[in-house]
Nucleic acid binder design. Sequence first.
DNA 1: CGTACTTTTGAATCGCATCAAATCTGGTGG
DNA 2: CCACCAGATTTGATGCGATTCAAAAGTACG
Lengths: 222, 222
Amino acid sequence: MTMNWPDLIEQQPALARIPDELRKRAECRALDSGATLFHIGDKVQSVFSVISGEVRLIRRDMNGNEIVLQRSRSGFFAEASLGSTRYHCDAVAMEASCLLCFPARPFRAALDDDADFRDAWLGHLAREVRKLRAQCERLSLRRADERIIHYIESEGSDGTITLNQSRKAWAAELGLTHEALYRALSRLQSEDRLSIQGQQLRLGRGSPTKAARQAAGDETKQ
Amino acid sequence: MTMNWPDLIEQQPALARIPDELRKRAECRALDSGATLFHIGDKVQSVFSVISGEVRLIRRDMNGNEIVLQRSRSGFFAEASLGSTRYHCDAVAMEASCLLCFPARPFRAALDDDADFRDAWLGHLAREVRKLRAQCERLSLRRADERIIHYIESEGSDGTITLNQSRKAWAAELGLTHEALYRALSRLQSEDRLSIQGQQLRLGRGSPTKAARQAAGDETKQ
DNA sequence: CGTACTTTTGAATCGCATCAAATCTGGTGG
DNA sequence: CCACCAGATTTGATGCGATTCAAAAGTACG
């Protein structure tokens, strides 16, 4: 089981501080599109990290409607499961995917023994909490344009973001239909509140150094 | 600094496994309505838990609009800050509030030294993650009644819940205006999908043993 | 009793979902 | 290279449901 750790770590900094013994026990697992990784009620036996593809945590309500709890395209998912013995939802690959699997017991042991790793893990959970809080606040905004702006401001940097997904998928993440997203995007663009170049989105007028101008003394408010 | 720990723990189970040395160093702090607890960029020097009142984590976008990242009325908030050296947002009391403050360094030290406390903290973060995911899921439902049902199903038990807040506050948590919530509640009630007795809400017809009747053969749907 | 707040109902408006359909895109196989 | 297909992207028309503004009734508290 030779793993290219440098590349993986490059892609997922959270993996960097995993101790060697745990790395040796990591396994790689391929999932076909549509394959189920675990079912609700299954025992928690592994901790997973997505290398490629997409895995979703899903629950079904009484009417059989699918409810997406988490959509993960990179990094750990179902981290919360480490705290419990059984899963609270299903995990399904939405496309052909590749996962890193760490056995849960050694993982917990490493958290106990390795202070560095523990710090990294706590930091990872903390980031996750921050991200989810931001998403809740975003979803509680009522208008589509507000959600878009909020997303760019909280997920991007300096008012700029490069989307790593289709707009249709983005719309779902924003809690909008794709039509509503497209319309809001073109409205924002026509009002000069947003500039779009492919997957690159930038707030404000499109000129290169908006942040620079602001830093230079554009104290309009506050 | 005499603190009534039993009562506090009753109110916030997360406080139960805090080691004694750390408890001794806890301080209580009162905030006036509108007071700022910390500013963005400030050094993280304490971990806070809300005892009463309301504190919000806030950030301002480039236009000076307020973005609420977290609204906390009970329990730890800005837990995520433990991972970083400086705050990513402001914290402001929305009403006269009372906080428990733990100094950050001893808090981190306790996490390192006390395996029990560490487990509890990891569990706390994990629960927080799960709860936030459930809330995201709920907020992405479009209709008011769906959010209400979802809330009762995921936060209550057995289709019943006792609200611990005003409906107005609940409406905010559900991402609705209070008017929309009131209307949806009475609609649900008139359609016999929900029974309300004060703060007690129960799904389905209000008679005592709804689950029993259903078990007895009330297969209206599915 | 009065003040502040929550609860409740009403009417008008706005924005998003929905349904429908056209265009564009990348990829496949002939 | 082209025909073809599945998916994403885009635009249009319509209706529903939540927001908004307004106001009344209820409630807690000093």
